[in-house]
Simulated scan of single mutants.
Amino acid sequence: MRSLDPRLLDVIERYVKPKTNGIGRYLHLLHANFARDDERERTLFLQSLHSAAQTITDEELEVLLGGEWRSRLTAAWLIAVDRRQHFRDVLGDLLLASQLCYSGQGYCFALARLCTQEDALHLAAYLERYLQQPDRQYDQRWAISALLHIDSRAGSEHASRFLAPGGLWHQWNDAQFRPSPPSRFIDDLCALTDSLE
């Protein structure tokens, strides 16, 4: 077994593993579990996340983005909370590569929170590729929700081509074990994060 970079281990200890209400930060972020907490617990967690996002350096974020899925998921959320626009293309490339499970949730949220046309193009490229692969259930639901969020904020219609009757979203969704309509849950997550500002 190869040993992990000591810098990565240090940054993981400080930003990925810290506990709020007895649960590590990355577990709160996974599937946005924190959103299901009661208001007091959710507020404590979001305050901790906001503080960490303002404290972590770009170099430390780069170290986390080179790590495993927990590190990447956490880094993406910290980038999102602090709206570090200069990570946009890195996040877009990592999303498209889809190398590790769960981390794509964070990339989608971060791109939604950055909320520009460039972010929409990264999400659209991801959907164009992975909606054509119905046997792969990755982060398509997160990506369509993120794209819908950007469209609603920017007055654009990037998601419409995927959501048109018979479009790629419907083809992919209909092939899933549990088909479901596209959801706007990213709107709610952005609103919760915005409440810290």
Rank of each mutant, 00 (worst) to 15 (best):
E59D: 14
L30V: 04
F162K: 07
Q54I: 03
F177H: 09
H50Q: 11
T43H: 13
Q85E: 15
L91R: 07
E197L: 13
R25N: 13
C190W: 01
D5E: 12
L148I: 11
R72Q: 15
L46I: 08
L111R: 02
T43A: 14
C108F: 02
A97G: 06
H122L: 00
L192K: 11
D187H: 12
A154F: 01
R178N: 10
Y126P: 00
F87A: 04
P165V: 06
D38V: 08
L27A: 10
A124M: 01
L8H: 07
L123I: 03
S98H: 09
L49D: 10
H122G: 00
D151H: 02
R161A: 09
E39G: 06
R153G: 03
L46P: 09
I56Y: 05
Y102Q: 08
G92L: 03
C115S: 14
H50L: 08
E68R: 15
R83P: 02
S48H: 14
R129N: 01
M1Q: 10
Q132I: 00
A191D: 14
A125K: 06
Y138T: 05
R184Q: 12
Q176T: 07
F177G: 04
Q54T: 11
I186A: 04
I150R: 02
M1W: 08
R83F: 02
A191N: 11
L44Q: 14
G22T: 04
G22Q: 07
I23E: 12
Q54E: 15
H50C: 14
R14Y: 01
L100I: 02
R161S: 12
A35Y: 09
S183C: 12
R113S: 08
I144A: 03
Y130F: 15
T57K: 03
Q99D: 12
Q99F: 00
H122W: 13
Q85I: 13
A112T: 00
L111G: 03
G166E: 08
C190L: 07
S71I: 01
D82V: 06
L96R: 09
Q54S: 13
H170V: 06
R129Y: 00
G104R: 02
I144Q: 01
S145K: 03
F87Q: 05
A191P: 02
A76Q: 05
Y130H: 01
C101L: 08
P181Q: 12
S103Y: 01
W77R: 03
N21K: 14
H122A: 00
G106N: 04
Q176D: 08
V63M: 02
D119C: 15
R14P: 03
L46D: 08
